[in-house]
Nucleic acid binder design. Structure first.
Length: 589
DNA sequence: ATCTGTGGCGCG
DNA sequence: AAAGCGCGCCACAGAT
């Protein structure tokens, strides 16, 4: 085996790029010294096609090499956001990665397999697995361990360099095989959306969400105080039926459902579950005390030490992992920590503060899912309400209850309509609606009937979505993202659950499509306008950006404009509204 | 000592 | 009081 050549200058790289200029796309891979862009770096760049690849010493070249590679070409990576994140950290803004044209063989595979049996059976979406399936190539991923912790390329063996080249070859072949399949399944557009959003997800992870660790600690201490007090209340409520420890507290473990149910039973309270609503429905103070304590414990445990310990030792910020396709609907997911389930009141949210001299701009789509439902169903009342800029829940309430309803005069009726809009739209039953509204089931039943009479298009659309899922075997969003139902019974999901998923997926998934289009447009717009704005969080229909105070106004306008444009790209008839707020800290939408 | 599944609950 | 959908994280329980 000959020693692969490692390029160290721009000239030879440009010559190589010229020699493959006929290729419809190039594949790119990197080898890094580790996974943390704030501690590790790119060591090696590999770029090429199925037949020709080169290696580039990452330390020997500058951002102009990255620009030369990307240069408005389609560049395909496997799990693109990781490579982009490392490249952004290594080469900075001058590399122009925020305007890159990107394809991602990993997300493409997720799009192709979404809900299909192979999605379940296949061992993940690793390049190794796909290379085997698509190209019959054997990749030995253990070789990659050899790169971690090394200081320079000279430590790499010729074997390791050959393996690095094979990863590019495999990525190219996999993507080339995926292209006709994407075309066949009508997924080309959404594959483009996912690729375009990859730089945005890279930026989200790289930049991180700025958090005031001291302020967080104070909020946590307050929550602990409340937790101690709810605990004392519990000890009192259960004093007759629990043993005491040395300090007079009860020895009951209130985190154990079994023990709690048993103890409640000894107090004469029969309840089937320790869910909050079940406890509250008993009307017993001891049950309410359990619910109150659990609420505090949830805060202390989920948003406690382990959460804030994730603040990065170098940046002091939270750098979560975003899964671009985290749900079968197409939604993203976030972990370590999850920044998509921070309590919505201001207690913890206000601890997310922009760095000195900067501000946060928070922008969220107003009523996104209901606008999508209006667009897809073409229901005249829903559509008219949005076109006229009306309050939809109030409009629906007026129609349902036969009199004028607005937020101020009839908050109760409006709240009912809101619960109906959100619940019934996705197949909630009369029982669920009754529980939600605290009304008898008979009344809920009548409310449902009235809703379906008043909005026949909503019902027809949802039932059609369920029917199509069974007949065609898949549901789809407005961008063509699909979820296959043919193999979903395997998960032991019953017919009812499947129809509800079928009703919900096009709506939730279209929302995800729109937000991803917006993310992609935003990073490009910020780069184009030369702003120092950075994406720092996204929560399904909300995007948070951090930028210098002086850029605040311009940045806020770009956010509004690009998010609205993203909505209009899919919703042709229904107007989209975006609420934008600028503040030193994260504010509730 | 770890692993897996479950119930519960934070968010959209 | 198993059912409106989608996540991730916590603690428990039962297993290895």
């Amino acid at each position: 085996m000959s020693e692969p050549e490692v390029l160290r200058e721009l000239g030879p790289l440009e010559a190589f790029l010229a020699s493959v200029s006929d290729a419809p796309f190039l594949a790119l891979d990197t080898e890094t010294s580790g996974l943390d862009p704030h501690k590790d770096r790119v060591l090696l760049l590999q770029v090429g096609t199925a037949t020709r690849q080169v290696l580039v010493d990452a330390a020997a070249v500058g951002p102009e090499a990255i620009r030369a590679i990307f240069d408005d070409r389609l560049i395909v990576m496997h799990n693109a956001s990781f490579d982009l994140k490392m490249l952004m950290a290594t080469y900075g803004d001058a590399a122009g990665l925020r305007s890159a044209r990107v394809g991602d063989s990993q997300t493409c595979e997720q799009l192709l397999r979404n809900g299909r049996r192979s999605d379940v059976v296949m061992q993940g979406y690793s390049l190794k697995a796909l290379a085997e399936r698509y190209a019959g190539m054997e990749l030995d991923k253990s070789i990659r361990q050899g790169f971690y912790g090394i200081q320079s390329l000279s430590e790499l063996s010729s074997t390791e360099l050959h393996y690095a080249l094979r990863d590019v070859e495999a990525t190219w072949k996999v993507f080339a095989s995926q292209l006709p399949e994407l075309e066949r399944d009508g997924l080309t557009r959404v594959a483009g959306i996912e690729g375009a959003a990859a730089p945005a997800f890279a930026e989200l992870e790289l930049t991180g969400f700025p958090v005031d660790v001291d302020a967080w600690g104070s909020r946590l201490a307050e929550a602990r105080g409340r937790s101690e007090s709810t605990r004392r209340a519990l000890d009192w409520e259960f004093r007759e039926v629990a043993d005491r420890d040395l300090f007079g507290g009860s020895t009951l473990n209130f985190d154990s459902d079994e023990e709690v149910l048993e103890a409640l039973g000894r107090l004469g309270i029969r309840v089937q579950s320790t869910r909050r609503d079940a406890l509250m429905a008993t009307g017993h103070p001891a049950a309410a005390a359990v619910a109150a304590h659990r609420e505090q414990q949830k805060i202390v445990s989920t948003y406690g030490e382990s959460f804030i310990a994730l603040a990065h030792e170098v940046t002091g910020r939270l750098h979560p992992r975003f899964k671009a396709i985290g749900a079968q609907t197409g939604r993203s997911a976030c972990s370590e920590p999850n920044l998509q389930n921070i309590p919505s009141d201001s207690s913890f949210r206000s601890c997310f503060r922009a760095a000195e001299g900067r501000v946060l701009v928070t922008a969220d789509y107003a009523g996104a899912e209901l606008r999508i439902l209006a667009e897809m169903s073409e229901d005249p009342v829903f559509s008219r309400a949005f076109m006229d800029g009306l309050d939809l829940h109030a409009a629906v309430a007026s129609r349902l209850f036969g009199r004028r309803v607005d937020k101020e005069s009839e908050p109760e009726l409006r709240a009912r309509a809101k619960a109906i809009n959100f619940g019934l739209a996705y197949g909630m039953g009369a029982g669920g609606l009754a529980a939600q509204l605290g009304i008898p089931e008979r009344e809920a039943e009548q409310l449902m009937q009235a809703h379906f009479r008043a909005f026949p298009r909503i019902r027809a659309f949802l039932e059609d979505a369920a029917r199509q899922a069974l007949r065609r075997g898949f549901g789809e969003t407005m961008a063509g993202r699909k979820l296959w139902f043919t193999d979903m019974r395997r998960d032991g999901r019953d017919e009812g659950t499947l129809t509800r998923i079928a009703k919900n997926m096009p709506i939730q998934g279209t929302n995800a499509d729109i937000t991803k289009i917006a993310l992609a447009r935003l990073v490009r717009a910020f780069a184009r306008e030369g702003l120092k704005a950075r994406l720092v969080n996204m929560v399904h229909d909300e995007i948070v950006v951090e930028l210098p105070e002086a850029e605040g106004e311009a940045g806020a306008e770009i956010l509004r404009k690009e998010m609205i444009a993203a909505g209009a790209a899919l919703l042709r008839k229904t107007p989209v509204e975006v609420d934008v707020m600028t503040s030193p800290s994260w504010t509730k939408g």
